[in-house]
Amino acid sequence: MARPTDPALRGPTPLPPERAAALSGLYAAATGRARRRTLAGFAALAALALLAAFAAEVRPLVFLENIGKFTAYLEQIWPPVGLEHPLADLRAWYWGLPGWLGLLGETILMAYLGTLLGAVAGFAFSFVAAANLVRSPALRFLAKRFLEVCRTIPDVVFALLFVIAFGLGPMVGVLAIAIHTTGALGKLFAEVVENIDMRPVDGLSASGASWVETVRFAVLPQVLANFASYALLRFEINVRGAAVLGFVGAGGIGQEFLAAIRSFYYGDVGAILVMIILTVIGIDLATEQVRHRLAGPEHDR
């Protein structure tokens, strides 16, 4: 059979040995530099981790010596439910279920209301903090710094301040969660706004639309799904946070949980802890389904 005359059908032409050796040397040098940079990065990361562990007084040997105390505590709060009388044991274990459910509902409502207020405030500040919508550097600077203050100070600190000002109660938890959520969601919302398609914005601005009209008709349709998804995720986080805020007098199940820990009521500690875990799991599963629906069919693929 005759060899094809078309050069494209003959396959690649082999390089001269000198040229192939030169290219191989360049490739080896490039991959060697990349490998050395990667190793240097890992070495620096390991050194920083060791330095941080030393500064934080991390003692692995002490941890290993005292791990038995931790496992012993877990055994003490393990549910005292046997195989002989499981229903009776379960009723005895959850002797305070009606009151605990009321406090757990209070915790969920605290998280819900705090998340709602924080999401509304973060929604408003996100557009002001977005560089592609606000041209004033001073206005953007003030908005971003305000959001940083809100999310930098822990919600527990806010709760302590509000307890001193307003006394004990769920309102303290709502305010603390709302302020911290404002900072967290405001930053996430602003990043979503900064990544939108600017062509609708430019089109409305060129037609004479006001800033509010531009945000309403060109920005909101692009960001609402992501805003709702982030808000739902934050609600799940705030349910856990609301349980912790009860430790400082913000009401809810956390206050009863702390009282059980301080009183060494191991059975109550285990029962309340299981309730909190199951609640967070249920909220996580529900919000996950809602987030997937908001993301659309592209997310499922």
Rank of each mutant, 00 (worst) to 15 (best):
Q76T: 15
Q76H: 15
P79N: 04
P79V: 04
P80Y: 07
G82T: 12
L83N: 09
E84L: 14
H85E: 13
H85N: 15
H85I: 10
P86V: 06
P86T: 08
A88Q: 14
D89P: 09
D89G: 09
L90W: 11
L90I: 10
R91I: 08
R91S: 14
W93A: 07
W93E: 06
Y94A: 02
Y94M: 05
W95Y: 12
W95M: 11
W95R: 13
W95V: 15
G96Y: 06
G96H: 07
P98E: 12
P98N: 10
G99R: 06
G102W: 10
L103M: 10
L104H: 07
E106A: 14
E106F: 11
E106R: 12
T107I: 11
I108Y: 05
I108L: 09
I108V: 14
L109G: 06
M110T: 14
A111K: 12
Y112T: 13
Y112V: 14
G114M: 08
T115F: 04
T115A: 02
T115D: 04
L116G: 03
L116I: 10
L117F: 13
L117C: 11
L117E: 08
G118S: 01
A119W: 05
V120T: 01
V120R: 01
F123W: 13
A124C: 11
A124Q: 01
A124I: 12
F127E: 05
F127R: 06
F127P: 06
F127A: 13
A129V: 04
A130T: 02
A131G: 02
N132C: 05
N132I: 04
V134G: 00
P137I: 08
A138N: 00
L139C: 01
L139Q: 01
A143N: 03
K144E: 01
R145I: 13
F146G: 07
F146N: 01
E148Q: 14
V149Y: 01
C150H: 04
R151M: 11
R151C: 05
P154S: 00
P154L: 03
P154D: 04
V156S: 03
V157R: 00
V157M: 02
F158T: 02
F158W: 08
F162A: 15
I164C: 08
I164L: 14
F166E: 09
F166W: 14
G167L: 10
G167Y: 12
G167V: 08
G167F: 07
G167T: 05
G167R: 08
L168D: 10
L168H: 05
P170T: 10
P170K: 15
M171R: 10
V172Y: 14
V172S: 10
G173V: 09
G173T: 12
V174T: 12
L175W: 08
I177D: 11
A178N: 08
A178C: 06
I179F: 11
I179W: 04
